[in-house]
Amino acid sequence: MTPNTSTNRPLELEDLGRFVVPAETAISPDGTLVVFTRTETLNGTAHSSLWAVSDGSEARPLTSGPADSGPQFVPDGSAVLFLRASDGPAQVYLLPIGGGEARALSCAADFPLGVAAARVSPEGLRLAITAPVSRNATGSVVEEPIVIDRLGFKTDGLGWNAAVRLHLFVSEIASGHVRRLSDGDWNASEANWSPDGLLIAFTAAIEPGSDLDWTSGAYVLDVDAKMPLPRRIGQATSVSGALSWSPDGGSVIAVGNRAPRTGNAELLRLYLGTDAADASLTAALDRNVMARLPGLPRRAPDVSCRRLRDPLLPTRARLDAAARARRRWHGLTGIARRAPPGGLCPVRGVRLRACGLRAHDPAEPG
């Protein structure tokens, strides 16, 4: 919350508009800078902008908003990719860290309904884009009348889905050339590039009847194939959200369960091109692993951090260390967060490195 001299009182409705929330963090490749989305309420309207902070310095604004989100560094750390929705549906922008104006990398001509997510390729030359598209023959967003032939016809906070689905595209940064990679009566998650830049991994409920049995799997697409077709990863039938690649490109990390069930979600390792069984990385954990931001499993840059010793095999104690590091991150950004009884915060995700799982701790040298 913003500073207030009267803090010893119950929370009131008017206080909700005074909260300032940091989220969607991106760490520079050299580990010296964190860019995050700062969301607040200004004049009764949600306002989000990008801010930057480094250890020992005050947070500073990078953009003025009012609808900037999803920051991520390009591989060489010279610029930040983000989404901006100030004049219509969100499009992809690139902002030089050293100063200068943000420039658009996508446009309404290619993405009339905007962009939901974008990920830059390992070599920094292409974007994997998840974007809403209309499956109507006319391209219109709304069917008249709306035809409902399966569950999931509405989305909380958005309303009727009608003929709109989320699908995958690849865009060349230099030329702006866009090519569609997927189609069908299903929604693709945010896509992540393989370490060699040849595949993108995502989750989707592609199988017939998935709306009835709540199944969703992990898939890869060959970006350069003339007719790319989704290829299944692992055996898990209840995973969702973004996937994270192992450094060797032989497996992905997913959030979910081996099969649909009620209870905590797990962190699963799914293997490509093999019949190896899916491995649960959090089987002994007595809490939920969240699939959505800010708890997405991601690879960490090469920064000073505390090692969680066994590669890809976290224990409760090691994940508790990740939770403690997260609380210290809240302290770094100026947002206080109390731990629940017992001194532990829910685990919101982990970060994956070549040497294993690590939790970045800004308060410790490594």
Results as ranks from 00 to 15, higher is better:
Lys154Gln: 15
Asn4Phe: 12
Leu243Ile: 07
Ser57Thr: 15
Arg179Met: 10
Ile173Val: 11
Gly342Met: 03
Asp310Asn: 12
Pro89Gln: 01
Ser240Gln: 12
Asp275Gly: 13
Thr333Tyr: 14
Phe153Asn: 09
Leu293Gly: 15
Val255Leu: 08
His360Lys: 06
Ser54Lys: 15
Arg60Gln: 15
Val178Ile: 05
Pro294His: 05
Pro365Asp: 07
Cys345Ser: 15
Asp183Phe: 12
Leu243Ser: 01
Thr45Gly: 09
Thr37Trp: 02
Arg38Pro: 06
Val21Asn: 14
Glu364Leu: 14
Asp248Trp: 01
Met227Pro: 05
Val220Asn: 01
Arg348Thr: 15
Asp310Cys: 05
Asp15Leu: 06
Gly295His: 03
Leu357Cys: 08
Pro66Glu: 06
Asp361Met: 02
Asn264Ile: 08
Arg179Gln: 12
Val80Cys: 04
Ser171Tyr: 00
Ile129Pro: 04
Thr274Asp: 07
Ser86His: 08
Leu281Cys: 12
Arg9Tyr: 07
Thr32Pro: 03
Asp87Val: 11
Leu94Phe: 02
Arg351Ser: 14
Arg318Thr: 15
Ile27Thr: 11
Leu267Glu: 03
Asp278Pro: 00
Pro145Ile: 03
Glu207Tyr: 09
Leu357Ala: 08
Asp320Asn: 09
Ala339Cys: 08
Leu181Cys: 08
Gly249Arg: 05
Ala137Asp: 09
Phe73His: 01
Ala225His: 08
Arg269Pro: 00
Leu199Asp: 01
His167Leu: 06
Ala225Cys: 04
Ala131Ile: 03
Leu212Arg: 13
Leu293Asp: 12
Val164Thr: 10
Thr2Lys: 13
Trp51Met: 14
Arg135Tyr: 12
Thr215Ala: 04
Ala321Asp: 13
Leu285Trp: 11
Met227Arg: 14
Thr282Ala: 00
Arg292Thr: 13
Glu14Leu: 13
Arg309Trp: 05
Gly263Trp: 06
Ser121Pro: 07
Pro346Thr: 05
Leu81His: 04
Gly263Ala: 04
Leu33Tyr: 09
Arg165His: 10
Gly152Lys: 08
Ala242Trp: 02
Ile146His: 11
Pro195Asn: 05
Leu312Asp: 09
Gly114Lys: 00
Val141Asp: 06
Ala117Glu: 12
Gln72Ile: 03
Cys355Tyr: 10
Ser238Glu: 08
Ala363Met: 12
Phe169Arg: 02
Ser6Val: 12
Phe73Arg: 00
Val223Cys: 06
Ala46Asp: 15
Gly197His: 04
Gly17Ile: 02
Val289Asn: 00
